[in-house]
Amino acid sequence: MQSIHPTGLSQLVRMPVDQVLLEGMLELPAKAAGLVLFAHGSGSSRHSPRNNFVARVLRETGLGTLLMDLLTPQEDRDYQARFDIDLLTRRLLQATHWVRQNPETTTLPIGYFGASTGAAAALRAAAAMGDEARAVVSRGGRPDLAGQHDLVKVRSPTLLLVGGLDTDVLELNQAAYALLSCPKKLSVVPGATHLFEEAGTLAQVASQAAAWFGQHLGTKV
């Protein structure tokens, strides 16, 4: 299916959720094949340079992206809110509902890209969405925080990307991976720490994410 904007779209959007307005940047390449919603991690936002880098690579393959803030600036100052997976998941599902009602995106297959605590929200949202969530990618995520109850319900093909030097998070990903019964892959990026700041490591993340979404959302990768 294709976006109704054959020449592409770049738009700041505001989504009403929980009596607040969340801002996001919606960008669709010409004839987008799908849409990836980004769930950022604790202390991060839609301006994250790492997620924006990944998003640019995804758009080059024909995917639309929605980078949004799941918390308001005031909420984000509350450390507990950053780790409130129930709240983050509810917001992500409400954003998904907005996408489904938005004329530019209503027909596009949906995937989720989650980083840090955002990965747990992405997996819980995927568990709730069933087959409507076509794929999930986690970058340096905390999928363990999604909890066993939801991890075993995920049907969306899931890729967990972890830095080889991020040993504690790698162990948590291995535990979560064992609970997933969907098509899945755990990919360890050699020489990478938690934020993938080492030369070339973020490019590997973007490349693998693009290939995963390409396989499951039908892009040209």
Rank of each mutant, 00 (worst) to 15 (best):
V221A: 04
T117Y: 00
Q148C: 04
V205W: 11
A125G: 14
S156L: 06
A176R: 00
P157D: 00
K184P: 04
P109L: 07
A115R: 02
E197A: 14
F113D: 02
L87E: 11
F113A: 05
G43S: 15
Q204K: 14
S45I: 08
Q204D: 13
S48T: 06
D86N: 07
A192W: 08
V36T: 02
A120Y: 00
R155G: 13
S181G: 15
A192E: 11
E198A: 04
S10Y: 06
G218F: 06
M129T: 11
R139E: 14
Q2H: 13
T107E: 10
S156N: 05
R155V: 14
Q148H: 12
Q101R: 07
A120T: 00
T105N: 02
V57A: 09
G114A: 02
T193K: 13
A127H: 05
T72L: 07
E27P: 03
M68S: 03
G218A: 07
H216P: 01
H47P: 00
V152A: 05
H97S: 10
L35Y: 04
R50P: 03
L159Q: 03
L92R: 02
L145E: 14
P73N: 00
L186C: 09
V57Y: 01
R142N: 09
Q2L: 09
Q204E: 15
A115H: 03
D76G: 13
R100H: 08
R142G: 13
K184I: 07
G34C: 11
T96R: 05
S45N: 14
R90K: 13
Q80W: 03
T61F: 01
A209K: 05
I85A: 06
H149I: 08
R82K: 12
M15R: 02
R142C: 10
L93I: 10
Q94K: 12
N102A: 14
T61D: 02
M129Y: 09
D84N: 15
A125R: 06
A127D: 08
T72Y: 08
Q101C: 07
W98I: 11
E198L: 08
R155Y: 06
A127M: 08
V137F: 01
L123D: 01
F196Y: 12
L26E: 01
G164C: 08
E75Q: 15
